[in-house]
Design a protein around this nucleic acid. Structure first.
Lengths: 151, 151
DNA sequence: GTTAATTAGTTAGCATAGCTAACTATATTT
DNA sequence: AAATATAGTTAGCTATGCTAACTAATTAAC
């Protein structure tokens, strides 16, 4: 039952899990996005901002890598965050680079987004067992690791 | 430990789980999308096609509801699927409605996408324990239920 | 030290995907 | 018959993804 490494999986089971994860990710994001839209911030901006708030300032390239997008994509995301005054640029010795950091407003907006998401979650959790909740935490962690292995 | 209903959650834990799920969903989709792009199909098209293949034919409005998007959004997704000859329209008695159904090609493409995703997953699972795998399955199921409660 | 190569970021242009508002066409209700 | 409701589309906005091609700055080569 608790065998350490499973080198081979039954195909049907792997398919099922892949589909479940994919579908769950799509629908979770769609639902959450509705909340975030009220803050006037898209999911990619929110996620990038989150990296800066919890991970500290970094360059555009580093942020792009953390978010698994290409530099031009992150460049535009940052433009949006700057326009909303959620992120600011700082010059560095290397004049090609920039350091991106969240503004106080950025921190506040992020926490507000978290608050809304968590309120949704808590509402939904009213009838959910603690077992399932623990499973969710474990699996979110698993998905994070999984994506790391995929990239 | 196995208390049935948790009416109130410690705030910090709920925040953490909400963030983990959000972040994991974003990054999982970004990674998987790279695979799907090679099939020339976007994630929304793939997800809608999946509903038609596994759930059977239905109207545009029903498909929009299943996918939690607005009718104009689904209208455009369907145009893309039709252009790629993955979906076809059937007329009904009610001439306002249409029935959308997957073509043979649509079924094939979907299974191909599944194959690619599952190959990624299996590769990544080489060093993952069965415990974590079970946790992933449980949590994907949890996320699905959670989204149902949120919508 | 000047030139070449590399690195950081942006711009331009394309596609997908989300939304609302406003429209057409058909069905249903009054 | 007329009003209302329903199904889907069109138009137009924004956000996000990409590649290719560009500028500017730094580092490496010679």
């Amino acid at each position: 039952m608790a065998k350490r490494n499973s080198k081979i999986l039954p195909g049907a089971e792997a398919y099922r899990i892949a589909d479940l994860l994919h579908s769950a990710a799509i629908h979770l994001l769609r639902t959450v996005r509705a909340q975030d839209r009220s803050a006037g911030i898209g999911p990619a901006q929110l996620s990038a901002l989150s990296v800066l708030v919890f991970g500290g300032p970094r360059s555009l390239k580093e942020l792009a890598e953390a978010e698994q997008v290409r530099p031009p994509t992150m460049s535009r995301i940052v433009v949006g965050l700057e326009r909303a005054r959620l992120v600011r640029r700082k010059v560095t010795d290397d004049k090609r680079r920039m350091l991106l950091e969240a503004t106080a407003r950025g921190v506040k907006i992020l926490q507000e987004g978290r608050r809304k998401r968590v309120e949704m979650l808590v509402r939904a959790l009213q009838e959910v067992s603690e077992d399932e909740l623990r499973a969710a935490a474990t699996a979110a962690e698993f998905m994070r690791k999984l994506v790391g292995k995929l990239s």
